[in-house]
């Protein structure tokens, strides 16, 4: 491969500057700020800060509510990921079978990803409203069947469904692309070998989709840890009784409502390392097992 080199370093610097600037302003600067806060006692109204060492982290990690939040986040991540990947896979499999009009269907199925999280939250808040939405009919038949305002489990389920719905489109695109890149002759060979449609899906298409599946899995899990803020904020505000107080949302609540900057900063550092660790572990140890040849 031929590489192009810039003779003049100034031009090279100029070309990469905007990108570096963006990364600096939106990643390194806030991250370093958070790090600074996490290791100091930050005054709510400004003023001098005092070096705290690991005191902020100790305080958080010994707080039972923080561990509750971690537990809820893991349930949310698992639930939303399984649900959205499952739905996306089913949709992609049908789209891949090229039912009539699948091209329009494909475009239609991609739309939800373009909808902002708070909008998704609002829409689902209406759908799952126990007295006005679709669930109100169910409640009329079985009083008390659905009540996300008072019942924490219901609230969490509601948030999981909304989060999954938003993610389905993204997963669908990748699954469909993955399925379509499987050579037709493999599926035809399967048909000649006597396998039914379902059998071919199980023995040929799904195993060959494994690399895509893995990639989508990593993206979904990390996303559900970091990108769930909008949905929680519009749908439940973390309630009832902190039942949907996911880690990202707790950072916001502690920091901007409780004005505990140091604690919030420490939490965001923990979350950041959690996401990094998850990604590294998954790429290191799982990805190896899903490659052929």
């Amino acid at each position: 491969m031929r590489r192009a080199y810039f003779k003049n370093n100034w031009i090279a610097a100029l070309v990469v500057a905007p990108q570096l600037l963006i990364i600096f302003v939106f990643f390194y600067w806030p991250t370093s700020q958070a790090l600074y806060w996490a290791f100091t006692f930050e005054q709510p109204w400004g003023g001098g800060n005092e070096w705290a060492g690991f005191e902020n982290f100790r305080a958080i990690l010994t707080d039972g509510r923080y561990w509750d939040s971690i537990k809820i986040s893991i349930i949310y991540a698992a639930g939303a990921t399984v649900l959205s990947m499952g739905m996306a896979l089913i949709l992609a499999v049908f789209a891949d079978r090229q039912l009539r009009g699948y091209k329009y269907y494909r475009i239609g199925a991609i739309w939800p990803y373009a909808v902002a999280a708070p909008a998704v939250g609002l829409a689902f808040r209406f759908i799952f409203n126990s007295s006005a939405g679709i669930m109100s009919y169910v409640n009329a038949a079985f009083p008390g069947f659905w009540d996300p305002i008072l019942n924490g489990d219901h609230a969490l389920l509601m948030v999981i469904i909304a989060g999954a719905w938003k993610q389905v489109a993204y997963n669908f695109i990748f699954f469909l692309a993955g399925l379509q890149s499987i050579p037709r002759s493999l599926i035809e060979a399967g048909a000649m070998d006597g396998a039914t449609v379902l059998r071919r899906m199980r023995d040929i298409q799904l195993p060959l989709l494994a690399p895509t599946f893995f990639f989508v899995l990593v993206i979904n899990i990390t996303d559900s840890f970091t990108d769930s803020f909008g949905i929680v904020d519009t749908m439940t505000g973390g309630g009832p009784a902190r039942a949907t107080n996911l880690m990202v949302y707790k950072i916001y609540v502690d920091g901007f409502q409780g004005l505990d900057y140091s604690g919030a900063a420490a939490q965001s550092i923990i979350l950041m390392f959690l996401v990094i660790a998850l990604t590294v572990i998954q790429f290191r140890y799982i990805e190896r097992k899903v490659h052929y040849t």
């Binding site: 060979a189 000649m192 023995d203």
Partner: peptide, 19 residues
């Protein structure tokens, strides 16, 4: 269906299952 016809086929690019 193909599986009901009792034919076996050898494809140009072989169509072997890579996994």
């Amino acid at each position: 269906e193909p599986r009901q016809r009792g034919c076996a086929m050898v494809f140009q690019n072989y169509g072997l299952y890579p996994h």
